[in-house]
Nucleic acid binder design. Sequence first.
DNA 1: CGGAACGTTGATAGCTATCAATCGACGTGG
DNA 2: CCACGTCGATTGATAGCTATCAACGTTCCG
Lengths: 262, 262
Amino acid sequence: MRNEPADLREPRGRGLERRRAISDVRFETIARRFAALTRLSQTELDLLHRIGAGPANIWPARSLLEAPGEDQEATRYIISGWAARVRELQDGRRQLVQVILPGDALTPTLQVRQRQQMIQCLTMVQTVDGAAVKLAARDGGKFPGIAAATELAAAHDRALLMEQITRLGRHTAYERMANLFLELHHRCNVVGLVHADGFIFPLTQESLGDLLGLSVVHVNRTLQLMRREGVIELKHGRLTLLDTEALKPAAEFRPPSLAYLG
Amino acid sequence: MRNEPADLREPRGRGLERRRAISDVRFETIARRFAALTRLSQTELDLLHRIGAGPANIWPARSLLEAPGEDQEATRYIISGWAARVRELQDGRRQLVQVILPGDALTPTLQVRQRQQMIQCLTMVQTVDGAAVKLAARDGGKFPGIAAATELAAAHDRALLMEQITRLGRHTAYERMANLFLELHHRCNVVGLVHADGFIFPLTQESLGDLLGLSVVHVNRTLQLMRREGVIELKHGRLTLLDTEALKPAAEFRPPSLAYLG
DNA sequence: CGGAACGTTGATAGCTATCAATCGACGTGG
DNA sequence: CCACGTCGATTGATAGCTATCAACGTTCCG
């Protein structure tokens, strides 16, 4: 019932060129993500490229990568498209707990059975099997970089959850949005999805509201304020940060600096 | 400057008996916490008891278990007292990201250098070194339970962060508070800190506000509403849930059900 | 052409914050 | 033993951010 027709949400005004450029780069996504976390050997890069180029599963927009109550067995990596962990309250209120981007892992690690929670595709999503990554990570002798990156990615994920908590707890609507935009910009940039400070932004205003704990109407008004101020441009599903520096003070954003594993 | 005199926050009207009962049980804290996550062998229980009975570090209330920007090398376990991960904004707004209770680990795993974040003691805190736990967890052959519990504890921690996100994003003040109280009740119960549905509750109303994203004043009014409704009793640093069932619908709370590792 | 999804706008309501002041408990120094 | 400062809790008055309701515009699509 939830499997509506796929929605690519690629930038609409662009031609085939961009499409190709993006898909050509997809197999590198995991490697890029990991390389941003720690130093990888050529062997490791090759392995990650092979994994990223492996057979991909396609999930249509709005489909569930993980249904409520369900526990996935396998680790998977998203190599394209956006997804989100969603929590629904009984009266219909929704909370997007976190946004999951290309290069991020869907781990079965959370043995804690989640309360009415699911992972939903915000766009069409492609995933690849992550078993090989897991195996490599276990062999810390042969793949020290992958082992380290796996751990760091988990820590990074945790840090982002804490960031989201601060946003929701103590930021105003404007600050939440500024902070989120900088975070997403940063994360997209890591996996090569940013061009000229702009990136595909498939969140609807309603989803944005569910993510930031705001109503649709207020999201709309805050966006327009930012547009009037000339700090962002958001149209045709593409977000461009026109004035990153102006955004930072409001958001108190600092890109996470990583400590390399010794 | 922050090291004010220790504050035990034991229930004030009680005699020596309770004091002894609590401290006698402290060494079991880690074992209790782990046993609630998975099945432990007697060997494992004994090991955890020994670890819990080992030399403890004492931290006065308000002291920092981890200063901003600092990375701790060692894993430590809290065996008594409450702490919190705190994030401070430049203009003085504070967010308590999570509450850390006896039995919880302070892991150095977060190699992501946190942004102006610290772990602060809310009461006097006792910690023990967790290196032995880490070692045991690595030896999955000999200590399968400890290995599993360590992983589950991490997943549990993550789940609690997500719970906190939902609270802050989509719950009203009343719901946030009800949900939090149930969570803390549940977590305290696991480590044997609950007696007759009541437990020591050292959070000031201001801290509660910083945790739930509310102002002190509103915390106060919400608490009084709950008191008038007869669902809680909170005095002398002790919280009693008088009507758990009445609290649950408001909070949509469900205790996390755990999947045992195979 | 109608419907559905998304975005936009105006009016109004309400939850929660802020400001200010008071009170009680506690610890300290005179 | 008491004045005094501090911390936490409490209360009243007021302001403001954000939600809710309702309606309309736009785009896309069968």
